[in-house]
Design a protein around this nucleic acid. Structure first.
Ligand SMILES: [Mn+2]
Ligand SMILES: [Mn+2]
Ligand SMILES: [Zn+2]
Ligand SMILES: [Zn+2]
Lengths: 156, 156
DNA sequence: ATAATAGCGATAATAATTCTCAAAAGAAGA
DNA sequence: TCTTCTTTTGAGAATTATTATCGCTATTAT
């Protein structure tokens, strides 16, 4: 029995809850609830991918062509969501910066350097050691990230 | 007794050895041994910092003004060194891409989000788990990186 | 020393991200 | 619903980071 758990694409809360949280957050900072912000949240929620701003923009143009969402709005909204801890950004080596909705449990990533496939996993032993290390070095941990690069099963 | 080891700034090989390796590498790929490549290697060797290309360029202009090394050469040489596994690049959240000479033992990083200080450490337990995880998921590990973000002792 | 070739610096080009601004939309209250 | 105030938006300019181009120079092998 392995203690490596995979498959973290399932959401920890449903969309309505998430949207509710978002609205509360916006009101609290007297920001407005706009259709652009809503469809960006929804699109992130419905995507299992780790999205680059550019890819997200393309998705939005496909799904909501009538809105003509601008790339600047995508960047602005991603920053807003990241600042509010609703999305996380990841920097995967050559692949550049990507975003994923935070409405998942914390997890780390395995990246195939051949086909680019990303596998999510979590390992309790590592999570625990990370906390211990921070403690031992007199550090208050806020966040951590770990990536394993290599060749996936399919590619070999 | 902790099993977290810190302080990895010491080099695992001396500069002459490193330079020798570099010359061999260059010859093998019929690349030329130039003064620019030499001072870049030397400057990286003599720096304990994790350097952005821009910072390295400034260092070089200070220490070797007569060479008037161009920024393009810095980028080119860093890429060459990275491709040859002599330097490693790191992406520290907001701080952007930084490089460090690989002539150190493998290690991970703790980054203070307040003052930017970077502490290096290695933890054998985590290293081992990383290998196991890759194995269990049918993955051939090539590399891995881990960062812990938080507030350092001084900043609190 | 010569010839062949790779590397250099300057700078143009590209890519990614942020800024600016005038018009449009959302929130709150009358 | 209408009005007013404030925030947000899209378009495109500006900025930043990185890469490509090119004529000249430095290095290497002979
Ligand atoms: Mn993920
Ligand atoms: Mn380091
Ligand atoms: Zn693969
Ligand atoms: Zn600090």
């Amino acid at each position: 029995m392995s203690n490596v758990a995979t498959n973290f694409t399932q959401r920890t809360i449903n969309y309505d809850q998430l949207l509710g949280d978002f609205k509360v957050l916006l009101k609290k900072n007297n920001l407005k609830f706009t259709i652009q912000r809503e469809v960006i949240l929804e699109t992130l929620y419905n995507s299992d991918e780790h999205l680059a701003p550019e890819s997200l923009h393309h998705l939005l143009q496909d799904k909501f062509p009538e809105l003509k969402i601008g790339i600047a709005t995508v960047y602005r909204t991603l920053s807003l969501l990241e600042d509010s801890d609703m999305v996380t950004s990841l920097s995967f080596g050559a692949q550049g910066k990507k975003y994923e909705l935070g409405a998942k449990n914390h997890h780390d990533h395995l990246i195939c350097t051949s086909c680019g496939t990303i596998t999510e996993f979590v390992d309790e032993e590592i999570e625990e050691r990370q906390h211990n290390i921070a403690d031992e070095l007199g550090f208050t941990m806020q966040d951590h990230s770990m990536q394993i690069y290599g060749i996936c099963k399919n590619c070999k």
